[in-house]
Nucleic acid binder design. Structure first.
Length: 786
DNA sequence: GAGTTTGAAACT
DNA sequence: CAGTTTCAAACTC
């Protein structure tokens, strides 16, 4: 089945093409109309898709059997599963919101204004290199003139980059914008199952915008209307899922399956009479910049398009993914729980992600969501999507991560001892002899996705890991040389933030780009109480996916009881490791729960902390207001006795002066404070003393070592020193004999003791002079002869 | 190293 | 929001 048109490569920006991530491992990108690639030119195989240009087919062609297996998702989950060749799975899913308009567009609507047939085709299969990361760039605000309903956010492509946009305040769908050039829809498969449910989409807004660009649902998903409309007749949404799958033979464990599934939700606003489209629209990436005339194509997250993971060989195309150099990064983790009833099927595409790229996987599922995961797992737990979205930065550079709470862990946290970086392992779908095809959604036992387990970076099993840079630090992570396909992302972002749902509700419409760190995203109006909290990225990465499930449970963490209970756990603000979003390592803590063995408790504690204080994990020392000092305590101190001149004061400890927001009493930590100046002088003097002492020690050490090196027995040096080797045993014995003889002589003559000692000492002096004389003579002779 | 002081965070 | 409690770091001896 052809998923991507061969024209895709030409469309891709150079920067993307140049990246390794885009490098095609297998089929040449320009290979025309390969049977494996998904293209419009092959309507016969995918007649529905050909008519729907909006859908981006990312999946390579798959064998009928594979396709069948992949599509056997009667109980598929909402999330789509993406995995790279190395076995890493990325899930990109979305659930349609109940507010979605009914899908009125038919598959035959090739002439829909929104979907211009002139749109470039994306036929080349996307291959993910070992890097496994796809970067989604922040989408520009789509003009309201497009006829999109207000309140709906649309992700636009910027600079040929994949854009991710979220719905506006009112909008709730998570939208992954695909470039219109990526018009070729993946093979759609009529889910056909009567279990049509309303798809709920969570929308992450990369940029603040209120307008939603309507996407005309072109794809005739066989059950699209049923799926979306069943739960809510008024809501119709076309969803399309693009799944990238790549099978890589794994030694004995069986083939590792890398899958990238992007489900695209198409909103047929133009076809529907309803003006306000609240349906969550998941827009897939946009390869080309969308214009009003050419509306951005949305990839239905959750719609299963069908295809079985195809061999990589067919895909020569490259996935246009913005390089990591984009200033902002957004990591999104699916929040909602997956519903087994989702009719949509994913399209599997081989995707190779180059190193340095992040794969954005948005899994958004609701119990009612029609989206199904075509990959092997029917149950919601089966899919554990970890999604990382790199948002190209129009706004301030940020790295945000959204973690799905309701999904099963498919991410493994990796903590490298001694390393400040935490790694997240995307669990690959290893079937242990089960090929992706074999993994049917209906079977729960199929371990399409292995449960997240703690791993170390040095383990070869790590297929995809994303180092998380500690918040407030600008760092570049240099890829570690590893034998395995371990992936390291180089980031230049100053901060990484994890956005996790603060509430169990599935729908939110946060504008991620505009969210300040630590912000708790308010629940979408009328969409439930779902909210997102922004966490330090390093912390998020450590979160085990299993914990997400626990937190996501509707009855679970929402109850205050669980939170209070967790507050008693060792995981609290008192622990610096925990407060810093790190696991305790080599700490002296007792009964520590801040480790992998207590993932669920830890997550609960985190949730509790965030509930109490949304900025609990936000750095205390931040940037002050304009005109003020660059660094300022975010909350201000509350000192009463220390005068803010001791390390008890957080301001003083951070070497910053107290500000107007401080509530301290008797503060002396201000610019003109004489006490402060005195302390500063003392501190400077002490520092100088320390430096001097250090320098003196260093000098002394060097002198000692130099002295030791000079104690060579050889007579090589031309100095006045004599070789100690002349004081041999014989010389010492002779000297002693001389001294004894002198002592006996004094005794025989009855000399007083004092005189006797003097005679002995004089004799010793004569002996020494003779020794020195011989030594000097020997030295001279040696220097002459040598 | 033990005991005290201190202030942030948690708790009520 | 204020008062109290808990906690661990900072500090003192």
């Amino acid at each position: 089945m052809d998923v991507v048109s061969p024209d895709l490569n030409s469309i891709l920006p150079d920067e993307i093409m140049d990246t390794e991530a885009i490098a095609m491992e297998e089929d040449p990108p320009n290979e025309p109309s390969s049977s494996s690639t998904l293209s419009e030119t092959e309507p016969a195989q995918v007649p529905m898709e050909t008519e729907v240009p909006e859908i981006v087919g990312l999946c390579p062609a798959t064998t009928p059997t594979q396709k069948t297996q992949a599509l056997t998702t009667s109980t598929t989950t909402d999330s789509t599963l993406c995995s790279n060749s190395s076995g890493t799975q990325l899930l990109v899913t979305s659930s349609s919101s109940s507010g979605l308009k009914p899908l009125t567009t038919s598959t035959t609507q090739s002439s829909s204004p929104v979907v211009g047939q002139t749109l470039p085709k994306l036929s080349a299969p996307i291959t993910l290199p070992a890097n496994h990361q796809l970067i989604l760039n922040k989408v520009a605000v789509s003009p309201a003139a497009d006829g999109k309903p207000p309140g709906t956010a649309v992700l636009k492509q910027e600079g040929q980059k994949l854009l991710v946009t979220g719905l506006s305040k009112t909008g709730q769908p998570l939208v992954l914008a695909l470039p219109h050039t990526w018009s070729k829809p993946a093979t759609s498969q009529g889910t056909g199952d009567g279990k049509a449910q309303t798809t709920q989409f969570k929308v992450v807004t990369a940029g603040a915008r209120t307008d939603l660009k309507p996407v005309i649902g072109v794809q005739a998903v066989s059950s699209a209307s049923q799926l979306l409309g069943s739960s809510t007749p008024l809501q119709a949404q076309q969803l399309k899922t693009v799944q990238f799958t790549k099978k890589t033979p794994v030694s004995t464990a069986g083939p590792m399956i890398t899958k990238l599934i992007i489900t695209k939700a198409l909103n047929n606003k133009g076809l529907t009479s309803q003006a306000a489209v609240q349906a969550p629209v998941v827009t897939g990436r946009v390869l080309s910049q969308t214009t009003p005339s050419t509306p951005p194509r949305s990839i239905a997250v959750g719609e299963s398009v069908s295809t079985v993971p195809q061999s990589i060989s067919s895909s020569s195309s490259k996935v246009a993914i913005s390089p990591l150099k984009s200033p902002s990064k957004l990591t999104v983790v699916s929040v909602a729980s997956q519903s087994p009833n989702s009719p949509q099927k994913p399209v599997a595409l081989p995707l190779n992600v180059a190193l340095g790229q992040q794969i954005l996987a948005v899994q958004q599922t609701s119990t009612t969501s029609p989206v199904k995961v075509g990959t092997s797992q029917s149950t919601a737990q089966a899919v554990k999507p970890v999604q990382t979205v790199a948002v190209g930065g129009v706004g301030q550079p940020q790295f945000k991560t959204i973690i799905p709470l309701a999904t099963q862990p498919n991410v493994q946290q990796i903590q490298v001892p001694g390393s400040r970086f935490h790694y997240v392992r995307l669990v690959t779908a290893t079937t242990g002899g089960n090929t992706p095809q074999t993994a049917s959604p209906s079977t729960n036992t199929n371990p399409a996705i292995q449960p997240a387990k703690p791993m170390m970076m040095n383990t070869a099993a790590v297929r995809m890991s994303v180092p998380i840079v500690p918040a407030q630090t600008v760092k570049q992570v240099v890829p570690k040389p590893m034998t395995s396909a371990t992936q390291v992302v180089t980031t230049s972002q100053t901060q990484q933030r994890l956005i996790m749902p603060a509430t169990p509700l599935p729908q939110i419409q946060p504008n991620l780009t505009n969210l300040p760190p630590g912000t708790v995203l308010a629940p979408a109006p009328g969409a439930g109480s779902m909210g997102y909290a922004v966490l330090p990225a390093q912390y998020v990465t450590q979160l085990p996916q299993s914990a997400f499930v626990t937190l996501a449970s509707s009855s679970g963490f929402s109850t205050p009881t669980s939170i209070q209970t967790q507050a008693r756990l060792p995981l609290n603000g008192y622990c610096d490791c925990f407060a810093n979003g790190e696991f305790c390592n080599n700490c002296n803590c007792v009964n520590c729960f801040n480790n992998l063995d207590h993932e669920s408790e830890r997550l609960k504690a985190i949730k509790a902390c965030l509930d109490r204080n949304p900025v609990a994990f936000k750095p205390k020392i931040g940037k002050g207001k304009e005109g003020e000092s660059d660094r300022r305590h975010s909350k201000g101190c509350n000192c009463k006795k220390s005068g803010c001149l001791k390390n008890y004061c957080e301001c003083y400890e951070a070497k910053i002066m107290c500000s107007s927001i401080c509530k301290c009493v008797g503060c002396k930590n201000f610019e003109e404070s004489p006490e402060r100046k005195t302390l500063m002088h003392l501190a400077d003097a002490a520092e100088v003393r320390v430096q001097q002492q250090t320098a003196a020690k260093t000098k002394l050490s060097s002198q000692i070592s130099d002295l030791l090196t000079r104690t060579t027995p050889a007579i090589t040096s031309g100095g006045g020193k004599l070789p100690y080797t002349f004081v041999t045993k014989e010389v010492a014995e002779a000297t002693c004999d001389c001294l004894l003889e002198q002592a006996e002589k004094a005794e025989l003559t009855n000399q007083p003791q004092a005189l006797a000692e003097r005679l002995i000492l004089e004799e010793f002096g004569r002996c020494l002079r003779r020794i020195i004389s011989f030594a000097s003579k020997a030295k001279t002779d040696c220097s002459i002869n040598c």
